[in-house]
Structure formats: C-alpha cells, structure tokens
Design a protein around this nucleic acid. Structure first.
Length: 463
RNA sequence: GGUGGCGUACCCAAGUGGCCUAAGGGGGCGGUCUGCAAAACCGUUAUCAUGGGUUCAAAUCCCAUCGCCACCUCCA
C-alpha cells in the first residue's frame, strides 16, 4: 500500500513521496498567542499530531516544526490594554499552549520557532526580496510586490484581477498595488521594534513563516499544514515569498484541516463563540476531544455540541471496555482472535493510507472491540486474547488515544471505602437482601461510582 | 461577485464506477445474560439532496436545480 495525501495545491489525492527517503519535513502553522487557546486550535494540533504519528508508524523520521506568532498587532493591542509588555504576554500564552499540548497528548514538535527569535533570518529574507525587486520600501515599511509573481494565487485558486474587482482590500496610497502586503512594518512609538535596514519595526505576519521554514527545514519541505482559513492569504503569501527567493517549489504537499464550528459558525476568537481548551479539559478527558476529531475527515468542518461530546464519551468507554481483562482462560478461539487482530490492523492501515482516513481506521478498531468482547463473553483468555488487546491498544496509540480510565490517577483515597461497600453489598446479595444491596449501588452511583456485577464478582469504575 | 468544498439512516459518519440492497459509533426497538440493573453479546433501524444524462454497471462520472459552509479582512 502507498500512502496518499490530499494536496490543496492540486485538489487531489497524490501518492506520498518524500524529498529524502524515509524522512519527512513537516511544518505546521501554530497560533498567534494573545489569548487563551480554544478547541479549534486543539483540533488543528490534533490533526497534525495524528499525521505525524502515522508517518512515524509507517517508518518515517519526521522533523516536525510548529511556530508561534509572538509579535503582531493583536498581541500589542492586548498588551497595551492591560498595560503589559507584549513579549511577556506572548510568553505567557506560549507556556499555556505547551501545557495544553501536553494534556492533549500531542507529541512535542521537533522545534517551536518564534518570530521574535528568527529576526535575523526574517530581515535577511526581506532584504533578498528587495534585492530581487520582489519587494519595495516606502517610508520604512516594506511591501511584497504581488504583480511581480506570475504564480501568485496558485494555492487558493484566485487570479489577481478577480481579486482586484472584489474591492474588499482597503486601498493604501503608499502601496504600488492594493494587493501588495506588508513584509516589514515601521514601529509606532511604544511598539516593540527591531533594527532593520528600513526602519525600527517588526515583521509582517506572513514573512515569519517563510523565514522560520528556511531556517529550520530548508528551501523545500514535504508537508505544510494548517487550518484551511490560512490558505488565503497566509499560505499563498508564504509561497510567494519563499519561492520568489529560492526559485524552487516550496512545499510538496499542502494539508489543511477543516474548521471547528460552534452554533453553525466557525469557532473564532473574533466571533466570540469559543470553547477554551482549559474549559473543555476541566470536564472532559483529552481522548474525548481526540475521538471527536478522529471521527470525521480532517478536511471537513466539525460542528461542536454537547451531544457530540456525549457520544464520544460513550465511544471512549467502549474502546476502553474492550481492554478489560479476560474473565476466563479458554484458548479454543486463538486462531480467530489472531486473524481478527491482523485484519483490524490491515484495515486500519488501508484507511490511514488513504489520506489519513481516521474515521475508517476507527471503524476497524471498533470491529476488533466487538471481537474482543465476544471472546471475553465466551470465556476466552490467554495469550491470543491479550495479543489482540495489545493490537487494539497499539493502533489506538497510533491515533494518539491513551484509553486510560478517568479518575484512575486520583481517586481521592476513596478506593478502600468503595471496596468495603462492595464487599458488604456482596454479602447482602448472598443473603438475598436485594433492596439493601440496590440501595448501596444506587447511592454509590449518585456519587459517581458505577458498579458492575459479573461472573467474577463486582467491579467498579468512575462514571 | 470570485474561489474552494459539502449534502449518505433519528443523530455523527466512512465509502467516490462493479466485492455497496452502503463500514463504524451514538440513539431507539426486540432478545440473551442478570435477583434486578449495568456492561457485554445477538437481531433490527438507508437504495445515498432533487431532476436529467453517460455506462453492461453510479452513492461514486457529467449537467441542471435546491440547500449549506469556508475563504476573498485578523483567524487553526
């Protein structure tokens, strides 16, 4: 099987071939850090985490770079409003974002470059663009000359003349052309500024990603990722900047995740319809969010609501339930179990090879879940049963799922008391004191402890 | 107005020319197990927006219509 990847640039799935055998250069656009991150940001991080994990599963070594935009107008405005230093403000949200990534079980990227730490490269790149006449300076600002780039628009499928008639671009007398965009902005008094040949100022939004790419991954990369709201203008401009200087194809594959929606609209800070990552994780496990993301195509929009969260809580329970230990030790279904595990793995890989079809891959896992549960009901145990469970756990792990019991880590010291109540209830049941036994179960349930009576005795878990 | 994408069961959703009278999950209904539950298991719940067309064969390709979304301004 060959891995195929949908390429935004060509609007089709293409066989995945790397620049260098066995090695993938992956760059993903990270957030602008001026406020709490929301689960839309998490979705993007999760999507590309799964991409990265699967590539690694397939044997690739992945060099994964994710940037932070830590200087821009929004950060400055926010910092000014709070009377704070913009750099410190950005730092705070970067730290918080790292915490979120860890809680979400996102594998750490190889590096996390920031605009403010790539300033020399940014300035050098702008200088190269000016030297080639791809950019020009006006009063300390530097603009990219869109009309000088015959390829401009190839990613987003627009042509320069159509956009011009769109007239949604604010006219700026100082630009040669309304479409030209800023590479360098001269600082106003009180704004953070860096020295450059043109002025004391700061970089434009798009140039930092070009510079960070060149600095960390080189002139050509395999995959460039981000949300599909970045296709235009951000990624279009990145291509223009980078390819104008290098003369080479910048990224071979452009991958874009769909937007997370809330109440029928894209979840976005500017619209105010957001669910913060920290709020979500305060009441739900990271696996629940990951399952939501995995449940549909990464390219399609995902509509968030409580019903979807509840559904995925159940899905998670079901996956975890399959990992419960065997209750018997029969081994007459070993061949069947081994075959089921192998088949699940085959279908998992076939789905993931098809542009990271995680929903299809999950389907394969759920079939294995049913096989495992049936086998357990039939009293199967032993090596093959455990091997099949290990397959399930491993493949779920490729998707980044942890499948740990909620509350497992912290039971507030309640376990001995719960065990005691269970022992007492077992005695009541032996004495057929059903009403009392049921009261114990009911009271525990109201405190979040769910009892399950099985042939091997009673087990409990947090509900 | 331009660009890209979407419309599959009660809900989420995979499948993009024959293995599809359509995977998987959630929910519902019926059953097995259980003292009763829970969990699990078994069964059941769709001809793929609509109308044409291409083809031996279409959810899958083409055309039209209707509806929805994103981007075109900061955005993952």
């Amino acid at each position: 099987m060959t891995l195929t990847v949908y390429n935004t640039l060509t609007h089709q799935k293409e066989p995945f071939k790397t620049l260098e055998p066995g090695k993938v250069r992956l760059y993903v656009c990270g957030p602008t850090v001026y406020d709490d991150a929301h689960i839309g940001h998490a979705m993007s991080a999760l999507v590309f985490d799964v991409v990265r994990r699967y590539l690694e599963y397939r044997g690739y070594t992945v060099q994964h770079v994710q940037n932070f935009t830590d200087v821009d107008d929004k950060i400055i405005n926010r910092a000014n409003a709070q009377g704070r230093d913009p750099v410190a403000l950005a730092e705070q949200y970067i730290d918080a974002f790292h915490d979120h990534l860890r809680e979400l079980n996102v594998e750490p990227a190889t590096s996390y470059p920031r605009a403010t730490q790539t300033m020399d490269e940014i300035i050098a790149l702008i200088g190269a663009l000016v030297d080639r006449n791809s950019a020009y300076e006006v009063d300390g600002d530097v603009y990219f000359r869109v009309r000088n780039d015959p390829d401009y628009g190839k990613l987003s499928g627009r042509n320069v003349d159509d956009m011009r008639s769109g007239t949604r671009i604010a006219p700026d007398e100082r630009k040669d052309d309304p479409l030209d965009f800023a590479l360098w902005k001269k600082a106003k008094p009180g704004e953070p500024a860096w020295s450059s040949p043109w002025s004391e100022g700061r970089p434009g939004w798009h140039i930092e990603c070009s510079a960070m790419n060149l600095a960390t991954l080189g002139t050509q990369i395999d995959i460039h990722g981000g949300g599909n709201d970045l296709i235009f203008p951000h990624h279009e401009n990145e291509i223009a900047q980078t390819e104008s200087v290098t003369g080479e194809t910048f990224a071979r594959y452009w991958m874009h995740n769909g937007m997370l929606q809330l109440r029928g609209e894209k979840m976005s800070k500017s619209l105010g319809n957001i669910v913060r990552i920290k709020d979500f994780l305060a009441t739900h496990q990271a696996d629940v969010l990951r399952l939501m993301v995995l449940g549909s195509s990464y390219r399609a929009p995902l509509t968030y609501d409580e019903a979807l969260v509840a559904e995925n809580e159940r899905k998670l329970d079901r996956l975890r339930g399959a990992l419960k230990p065997a209750t018997g030790s029969a081994t007459d279904q070993e061949t069947m179990l081994a075959a089921a595990a192998e088949q699940a793995q085959g279908r998992f890989e076939a789905a993931m090879d098809d542009d990271f079809n995680s929903a299809g891959a999950l389907g394969a896992l759920f079939d294995l879940v049913r096989t495992l549960n049936s086998a357990r009901d039939a009293g199967q145990g032993g090596h093959a049963f455990e091997r099949a469970q290990a397959t399930l756990r491993d493949l779920a792990g490729v998707l980044g799922l942890q499948l740990v019991e909620d509350g497992e880590a912290d039971d507030h010291g309640a376990s001995p008391f719960i065990e005691l109540l269970i022992t007492t209830r077992t005695e009541l049941r032996k004495a057929k004191q059903w009403a009392l036994a049921d009261t114990v179960r009911k009271e525990l349930a109201e405190r979040g402890v769910v009892l399950e009576d099985g042939p091997q005795g009673t087990t409990w878990h947090w509900g």
